[in-house]
Nucleic acid binder design. Structure first.
Lengths: 169, 169
DNA sequence: CATTGCGTTTAGAACGATTCTAATTACAGT
DNA sequence: ACTGTAATTAGAATCGTTCTAAACGCAATG
């Protein structure tokens, strides 16, 4: 795992260099944090942790760097709804899906399944009859449900009860 | 199609009644508009069209009604990213996926494929090894690509070029 | 090493989407 | 009709994100 993150970091740095983008201390710090983070952090998450080292850093820098990485195809942005409307950023560029816990909001990467033996034409059929001529570029899949921790009735993750839910109880 | 929408409308009205929620003219108008709308409208979309009939209606009423429907399980909310961060609301309660056009942003419902004959255990396997113990409640799938209209090079849909993209060109 | 150009950073304002507030209105059960 | 309570309204507040203008600093060059 550690080596995987290091490779990720180096790929990110190389890409910034190749694109003639400047390697500022702030950017390197963001990359270091971000490439090793499996939690799909929000911009807030990164900002909060970066302020320890760069007390004057602004949100714009975090977003700028994430934008640069996204343009380079090194990150993706997740909008999974839920308690917060904040985007989640994902440094994993391998094709994968996501499992989102309804209770704690945690997001887990799920590698794509190995190619099915023979029968996946059903999907293509229904797609083509419902949206004729649609040219698929990518497929995203989100599994929603309860993570192992939350299914056990424990108190896990970071999800805070929303005002809306509080009013309903 | 028309009858399908009517059924949808009546189910919505019944549900509000059963839940002892009041059937105000505003709510009925929202339901009428919404249940017949395949375009996955935003709150803005609905609000704009409702102002023709109810010049004093506020956004809060639109959101209130959509919330009530969501609590009743009669709608779902889509956060698909893209140009606008606005949520899209979906009155279709049948299990289905979505095809989103990268260019015009249009969203098309895709019915779930008929159950595959035998081999779908691959997915379950990778899920269980990547997120052990995760209890799946629902699976969402988003196809991204080009709709038939946009693949043909035409000018379609409502997507407006974002400031970010404009700066890049 | 000094110069310098242009990409970056910064603080804060601006923005869009959504939620809240407090006061008013009006369903629906009697 | 009366009345309790939920719904509506306008506008303010909030949250996440993007923009702005000025100051800064990386890195290519002499």
């Amino acid at each position: 795992m550690r080596t995987e993150h290091k490779q990720r970091y180096e790929r990110m740095v190389d890409d910034l260099r190749q694109k003639k983008l400047k390697l500022t201390p702030q950017r390197l710090a963001i990359l270091r944090l971000f490439c090793a983070d499996e939690s799909h952090p929000t911009a807030q998450d990164l900002y909060a942790r970066l302020r320890a080292t760069f007390p004057t850093m602004s949100f714009a820098t975090v977003y700028n760097t994430l934008d640069a990485l996204a343009l380079a195809g090194l990150t993706s942005t997740l909008n999974l709804g839920g308690e917060s409307r904040a985007s989640r950023f994902d440094p994993n560029t391998d094709p994968h899906h996501h499992a989102v816990c309804d209770v704690c909001g945690s997001i887990t990467d799920i590698p794509v399944a190995p190619p099915a033996p023979a029968a996946s034409s059903h999907d293509a059929d229904t797609l083509d009859s419902a949206a004729p001529g649609f040219a698929v570029r990518a497929v995203e899949r989100v599994y929603r449900g309860l993570c192992a921790g939350c299914a056990g009735g424990g108190r896990h993750g970071r999800a805070t009860t929303s005002r809306k839910k509080r009013l309903l109880s």
